[in-house]
Computed example of a mutant assay.
Amino acid sequence: MESSEPLRAVFRISPVVRVTLLSLYAALMVPLPFLAAATDAPVSPRLLWVGIGLGGLALYGALSERVILSDRAIEVTYPRWVPRLFRRGWSVPWEEVKALRPRTTGQGGLVYYFVTESGEGYLLPMRIAGFAKLVAIVQEKTGIDTSDVRPLSQPWMYAILFGCTVLLLLVDAWTISTALTNN
């Protein structure tokens, strides 16, 4: 039985992924201006802060991806403030989706591409919250069997990375305090 309600489902990058990657970025970058000041590096700490800020903004923009499913199509978009030059979205009508093909990544993982009637490929977003629901809707709309489609990485992998990031942040705190007291 089909629902009379029009389909409009919006999926975003999983908060576990976003928080982990943003925290790791901060842990890797924030000590640099303090170390530059403490060592009289040729690069200005202010310039480093500007670069870190711009890089953080770019990372936040990349992690702001949205997947929108409607009765008509699947669409990947980004907020308007993310320049199209950096992150282009895409949209594919359901009737043009011919297959969902797996491809092995360089690290041995498995990603999937939507293949259209014209032979174009579009990467299935796999780091989103509600991935199982997205895959179920894809199967319903395309008739393609998605029972073997799994997310690229499991949440526990990001939990381990986040734990390591917290340890790195503790080392950062010690590094920054040492740099400030010796400066």
Rank of each mutant, 00 (worst) to 15 (best):
L35E: 07
P15K: 14
G51P: 00
T146R: 04
R8W: 07
E140W: 01
S91P: 01
G130H: 07
Q154G: 10
T142K: 02
P6W: 03
T20S: 09
T165C: 06
G56Y: 09
L168N: 04
P83T: 03
L7P: 01
L24H: 02
E96Y: 05
L63A: 05
R12Q: 14
D40M: 03
G143S: 03
A129Q: 13
R101G: 00
T181D: 10
V171T: 10
V138L: 10
G56D: 06
V97A: 04
L123C: 00
W49T: 01
L69R: 08
S44K: 08
F131A: 05
D145T: 05
I160Y: 10
I144E: 06
L180A: 14
P102R: 11
G130P: 03
T116Q: 01
D145N: 13
V17R: 02
A41L: 06
F162K: 02
F162E: 03
R103S: 11
G56T: 02
M1L: 06
G109M: 03
S153N: 15
R101K: 14
S118R: 14
M29I: 03
S177N: 10
Y122E: 00
L24S: 01
D71A: 09
V76K: 12
L35R: 03
G53R: 01
T105I: 06
E5K: 14
V97C: 07
L123I: 05
E75L: 08
G130Y: 05
M157D: 00
R87M: 12
I52L: 11
W174L: 13
V16L: 15
I160G: 07
P15F: 10
Q107W: 08
R127Y: 11
Y60A: 09
V171W: 13
L100N: 08
L170K: 04
L57C: 11
R127E: 14
G53L: 04
G109W: 02
L134F: 14
V67A: 02
Y158M: 07
V82A: 08
V76Y: 03
Q139I: 01
M1K: 10
E140D: 11
L167E: 01
G55K: 12
D148F: 13
L57H: 03
L63G: 02
S153E: 13
A27K: 02
P102E: 12
G56Q: 03
